[in-house]
Amino acid sequence: MSQFLQQLLNGLSLGSIYAVLSLGLAMIYGTLGILNFAYGELITITGYTMYFATQAGLSFAAAAALGAIAAAVASVLMQQLVFRPLQRAGFVTLLFASFALSEVLQGVFRQAVSPRAKGIPLPDALSNTIVLGTLRISTLTIITFVVAIVALAVFAVFMRRSRAGLHMRAAALDLTTTRLQGVSAGRVILLAFALSGTLAGIAGVLWISRTATVTPSTGATPILVGFIAVVLGGLGSTVGAVVGGFAFGLLEVFLEAYLPLGVVPFQFAIALVAISVLLYVRPEGLFGKAVEVKV
């Protein structure tokens, strides 16, 4: 029982990172129909920014803030430099372009920084452990969960209450009608990328705090998880992405805890097969809309 509770807490903590991550990915898909493969590199960018900032003597907190901002700026630049010139292209072309962009960025990291991993010193406070009865919880687990939940809540309030959030929700429903109300499409898209980048940045800070290193291919696992969570939750649904993120985090932790030792390396594969079975039953994902046409 206590092991179950322990794993539940770990799972929720990891899941909360995945939820933030997936939300940023789902937002861009919801507004523009782009699945941004280079989204993972935003996390790498956060990592390198944190690395250089701590090297320059900044505090961890300042480095984390800079890291998140860097991801937001990079996300906007991606839109301006790559996606905008391709705005008339279809889903496949855009996906492929983002795939290529991801490779270009990894190449840049290798040339400009180093192909080898760079360590980021974490404050000691993060590695403390709190003992609650039979439970041992690291400070990082708690902080991660709290930061992620606050980020999700702030995002939800922003989308509900603010004028910009209203415009973005409307644009995701019907861009032309939104423009007919005098809302600039360009601004909404820019804002969507900035917000998506901020979410990637927050997830990035939490991710880097777990790994304490950054390499040119740091973004690979997060993007993979994000894609799976988004498909699991239902393409185009932001609620689905958050739920999918939590679900995948829990699945990962529980598989790791309860699988026989020899099978643990295959946990990723097993999780994917499990999700495939789920998608066989519900091809549109947990929160996606069923397609009516029976073709």
Partner: peptide
């Protein structure tokens, strides 16, 4: 650029309402 036209004081009430 329908948003610019809209800001000049023109509104379209579209066919089928197109409310959100």
């Amino acid at each position: 650029s329908p948003e610019r036209v809209a800001r000049r004081g023109l509104r379209l009430v579209p066919e089928g309402r197109q409310i959100f």
